[in-house]
Design a protein around this nucleic acid. Structure first.
Lengths: 255, 255
DNA sequence: CGGGACTTTGAGCTTTCTCAACGATGGTGG
DNA sequence: CCACCATCGTTGAGAAAGCTCAAAGTCCCG
């Protein structure tokens, strides 16, 4: 059974026409827009619920939409024909989704990744053509999109370093810090000790994200626990007891 | 000694004010601009020569410029304090460089990567502030930049799949195809059999790009040669004898 | 022609993977 | 309400891909 952290309260589902209620109103892409601009954008937006485990974006399908996540967590991935899978990122509240497309001469833009809901997800869906034409009227939106793309590129470089050159222990340490920072909307060096970290993804997800096997993820987490660096409460909650030491492992520092 | 594929002819160095002469005039970013627009852009551009092996961009330094490569090949990389290095990409003629920056509250934008010239490189350098303000006047340029960023994101996902989930043999096959496609400005399925491929980078570069050691790169290339898939002439020229079979290995296909 | 840097090949080792069994957890139906 | 069952996670033992250490070979370039 998929992990479901909270029951969805149907009464407070954000509607695209009610952006001011939305948990993502002031972060990410929407945070860059004025109320007036946002009101115009809602013309091309729909609010959509996606249940845990459901496919949201199919790799290779025509890219018809952009998405903005308002609740829950999404995994992005690429697959090989024999079933090997690489998760390329986890997207949370406020994050924008859909830039990674390839333009193929006959078919037009197709998604270069798959996306699935890890837990129950609520998101805004924008028609691709509509949003792109809206860029003409909102240069601030395009600036913001470029900034989003730039941030994702930086994160992608970091992940390449992790996948190409880090040990299993370093990978887990890097992930825990980065995930805590992303979850709490904080810089990685501002994580405070002992705070509980929700980890909605399964061990299989972690393995496919970190380029390891599920067994190595499990063993390495157990080792971090034995070393007193983390506390593990069930499979989906981890407390970072010593963030500085975890950071030292992640970034290969002396301390 | 660094590899130097051709002597630089000093007489035909492109100047920013002579874009029409430039080898990159009709590809990449500049290809998206009219002659008139380009003429305006040259205000913020300088033509720069960088010798093989020279550092072009220092990771963590303030991001003062964007670059566009007119000749030669550049490696982008990230490093760990103990010397481990991950090359995140190789940039060739016509490619644009400098989007991958992190904005740090006190310092402003800093480069999130290092860059070095692999062979002798000729490039256009744009003042960052100047180019960004130019975006106001040239929305087409910003569209193009977003498209460049999107393409790089797609390539980054592919590389994560390679680093996280592919075998050494699959990594080399993937690299050879992708490099041939990039070099010849062709789609990967249009590589023709037997064509010589210039590989200016060293085995160490390949290892640091593919998440392997230099020995594994060498052994795996030798194996591809023994299997009749490639021909190796010296260290820096490889002919793809059977591109289809190489593609089958790279993408884990049945054929 | 000599020497340094780069590449190739070999042998043994280590990290991580694979295969297997056991344990925990949470939802479901009796 | 509790026992069952499926799924997920943990731990162990052996195997393997790729790494490390070492030595010989090659290629430039002076």
């Amino acid at each position: 059974m998929q992990y479901r952290p909270v029951a969805i309260n149907l009464a407070d589902r954000p509607k695209a026409s009610q952006c001011h209620d939305c948990g993502a109103r002031h972060i990410g892409l929407c945070g860059a827009l004025s109320d007036d601009d946002l009101a115009l954008l809602t013309r091309v937006a729909q609010s959509i619920a996606v249940a845990a485990g459901q496919l949201l974006v199919d790799e290779g399908a025509p890219a018809a939409h952009f998405f903005n996540i308002n609740r829950g967590t999404v995994r992005l991935f690429k697959s090989l024909p024999d079933g090997r899978r690489q998760i390329t990122g986890f997207m949370g509240v406020g994050q924008f989704l859909g830039l990674k497309v390839t333009t193929q001469p006959p078919a037009g833009a197709v998604y270069a990744f798959g996306a699935e809901a890890i837990d129950d997800v609520q998101l805004c869906r924008f028609g691709r053509a509509g949003l792109i034409s809206a860029l003409e009227d909102f240069p601030a939106l395009e600036h913001r999109l470029l900034a989003v793309a730039s941030d994702e590129l930086v994160a992608a470089q970091d992940q390449m370093l992790l996948l190409g050159r880090k040990t299993a222990r370093e990978r887990l340490a890097s992930f825990l810090l980065a995930w805590a920072a992303q979850t709490h909307h904080l810089p990685a060096d501002a994580i405070h000790a002992g705070a509980a970290l929700a980890v909605p993804m399964t061990r299989t997800d972690l393995a496919d994200y970190l380029g390891l096997t599920i067994e190595t993820v499990s063993r390495t987490l157990s080792q971090l626990r034995r070393d007193g660096l983390v506390a593990i409460h069930g499979a989906h909650e981890i407390a970072l007891l010593k963030p500085r030491e975890i950071a030292a492992i992640a970034h290969n520092l002396a301390g």
